[in-house]
Simulated assay, not measured.
Amino acid sequence: MGTEAPATDTDRETRFRELYASTYSDVQRFILRRAHPSHAEDVTADVFTVAWRRLHEIPASPGEAKAWLLGVARLTLQNSSRGRRRYEALAVRIAEDLPRQVDTDADTEVLTRRLDLAVAWPRLSTTDQEAIALIAWDGLSTAQAATVVGISAVAFRLRLSRARRALRRHLDDSPRPGSGQPIHQRQTARRTR
Rank of each mutant, 00 (worst) to 15 (best):
R33M: 02
R17P: 02
R159L: 00
Y87V: 01
T147Y: 04
A166M: 09
T108K: 04
L111K: 05
A106P: 12
S22W: 13
Q181E: 14
S80K: 07
H56W: 09
S81I: 13
A40S: 06
V72D: 07
T104G: 03
R85K: 06
V102N: 10
G139R: 03
E96D: 14
H36S: 11
R15Q: 04
L115R: 04
S22G: 08
R100K: 09
Q181D: 11
E18R: 12
L98R: 03
R114W: 09
V43R: 01
V148S: 08
Q185T: 02
E4D: 05
P182Y: 00
R54G: 07
R15A: 11
D103I: 07
A51G: 06
F16S: 02
R54C: 11
A21T: 12
A91T: 10
L115D: 15
V92L: 03
H170N: 10
D103P: 10
R176P: 14
I31E: 09
A133S: 04
E96Y: 12
E57Q: 09
R15K: 05
G139V: 01
L171Y: 06
L70V: 08
V43S: 05
L90M: 14
R186H: 04
R12S: 06
H56K: 15
P59Q: 07
S125R: 14
R17H: 13
R86M: 10
R86V: 11
F16N: 01
R12D: 11
G150E: 03
R123K: 04
G63P: 09
S25T: 08
A155C: 03
R85P: 09
Y24N: 04
A118F: 09
